[in-house]
């Protein structure tokens, strides 16, 4: 396992483009979060301090930072599709297999790299949230701090699922740009199918089915936190209430998709003549 991960890391980290993209997708969000936690004086008119809004309070901070950081996943998605696209365009996938890597090992080395970067990202976001939280939060009791840390798990699973989807699309179309276009098409078609379902049945049934779609199920893991912040400001407005918690069935759906994408990538490679 370490050998396969090591292989993939050498391929990625010696490539300048992917190095920059990895930096953008994993390191940049932490700087942004860190910066936003600093008191900013807007041209002397007023001071903007997000900490004052209570958004860095435990446990809401877990929700906020994981949601925010997951928006940067798109940059690593480019890395994932190009690490497949490059293997095809350089024909190094053929050479790797001739050199004695099995098709299964090839897919696994890509998957391990995805797990590795998702894990690092999760650990980093966990640490930074903890530090900012401890600094700003009004409540620092242990019980409150560890409440909703399952957002971290959701963040990890969300990255894993999304990158596995990118891996599969990369294997399917072999070209990075087309794979990203495909991702966009998938996003749109999920909404079109949702629209059709609503028209055929009703909104309630349609949204139930939509929760099983790959992209929607990943989104469901960490829903937008703004409404929640608003809720905490205006607790009397009941129409703002929504279900933002991480549920086990949501995790299972995404993990199911992840397994399916990796399995299909392997089947696809196995069937193909290179």
């Amino acid at each position: 396992m370490l050998r396969l991960l090591n292989l993939e890391l050498q391929k990625l980290l010696l490539n300048r483009t992917s190095k920059i993209l990895i930096f953008i997708s994993f390191i940049l969000p932490f700087f942004v979060i860190l910066l936003s936690s600093i008191k900013i004086n807007v041209f002397g008119f007023f001071t903007l301090e997000l900490g004052e809004l209570g958004v860095f309070n435990f446990p809401i901070i877990w929700h906020l930072t994981t949601f925010f950081a997951s928006q940067f996943k798109f940059f690593f998605a480019i890395v994932v599709v190009s690490m497949i696209g490059n293997e095809y365009s350089n024909k190094t996938i053929k050479q790797n297999l001739i050199d004695g890597l099995s098709k299964k090992e090839f897919i696994l080395s890509k998957f391990y790299a995805i797990v590795f970067f998702s894990l690092i990202s999760t650990v980093l976001i966990g640490l930074i949230s903890l530090c900012i939280g401890l600094y700003y939060s009004s409540y620092t009791e242990f019980g409150i701090i560890i409440r909703e840390t399952n957002f971290l798990l959701a963040y990890f699973v969300k990255l894993l699922g999304f990158f596995s989807l990118c891996l599969f699309l990369g294997m399917l179309v072999k070209r990075s740009a087309f794979a990203l276009a495909f991702l966009f098409v998938l996003f749109i078609s999920e909404w079109i199918i949702f629209g059709l379902l609503t028209w055929q049945f009703d909104h309630h049934v349609a949204s139930k089915i939509q929760n099983f779609f790959p992209l929607q199920s990943m989104y469901n893991l960490i829903e937008q936190p703004f409404q929640r912040v608003a809720m905490s400001k205006f607790p009397e407005k009941a129409e703002l209430a929504y279900d933002y918690l991480v549920h086990w069935h949501e995790l299972v759906i995404v993990l199911g998709w992840t397994a399916l994408f990796i399995f299909l990538s392997f089947k696809l490679l196995k069937k193909r003549d290179l």
Binding site: K11, L14, N86, N90, T92, I98
Partner: peptide, 11 residues
């Protein structure tokens, strides 16, 4: 084994 064209990582 070497097949047709040499395939390596250009970077």
């Amino acid at each position: 084994a070497i097949i047709e064209r040499p395939n390596f990582y250009p970077y």
